[in-house]
């Protein structure tokens, strides 16, 4: 296949025809489409990071000389329970199935304002809680600008 560009010309002169050969272009497109179809990523996934201490290993982080508050978000069947050191703030569910993430978010934002240097929060879950609730809680904690989230078992930690 080719495209002919006829520039015409005066009588007696040799006409100037420039044929643009599109066959290599079609071949290139076909090869590119085949390659890109094979390497295409159709499902875009992301990650939510959580830390846990390796069992049996001592913490390698330096112990802070200034005592800081310990913030824990406990997820149980009744709802959330926000524990700051020894103070507990229960946040019950809105209805049978819906957890009150907005109230949790407000409480966490107040804590962040009170402790702007504090970045770590522990999320503790009971056994029967579904994974999506755990992710929802972790997401709410990160939205409140606590970037260092650890996930532990509420029962095993004696909470």
């Amino acid at each position: 296949m080719s495209v002919s560009v006829d520039t015409g010309g005066k009588g007696g002169k040799k006409p100037l025809n420039a044929d643009l050969n599109l066959v290599p272009y079609i071949d290139l497109l076909t090869c590119m489409v085949a390659f890109l179809l094979i390497t295409a990523v159709w499902t875009q996934l992301a990650r939510l990071e959580a830390k846990q201490k390796a069992v049996g290993q001592a913490s390698t982080e330096e112990q802070p000389t200034i005592p800081t508050v310990k913030i824990t978000v406990i997820i149980n069947e009744e709802g959330y329970n926000l524990v700051v050191d020894q103070d507990q703030t229960p946040i019950p569910k809105v209805d049978e199935k819906t957890y009150d993430t907005e109230a949790l978010s407000e409480q966490l934002k107040k804590l962040k304002e009170a402790h702007p240097d504090k970045n770590d929060v522990i999320v503790a879950s009971e056994d029967a809680i579904h994974f999506e609730r755990v992710v929802q809680a972790m997401d709410t904690v990160i939205s409140a600008r606590f970037t260092d989230v650890s996930l532990i078992d509420a029962g095993g930690a004696g909470i």
Binding site: R47, E49, Q52, V55, D127, A128, V134
Partner: peptide, 25 residues
């Protein structure tokens, strides 16, 4: 999946030296 099952996998991973857990979302 309940957290009861997830914590076993996390515990196993921690024992094997995988302390950084990334949840696919």
């Amino acid at each position: 999946v309940e957290f009861k099952a997830l914590k076993k996998v996390m515990y196993t991973a921690a024992l094997a030296g995988y302390a950084n857990v990334n949840f696919a979302v």
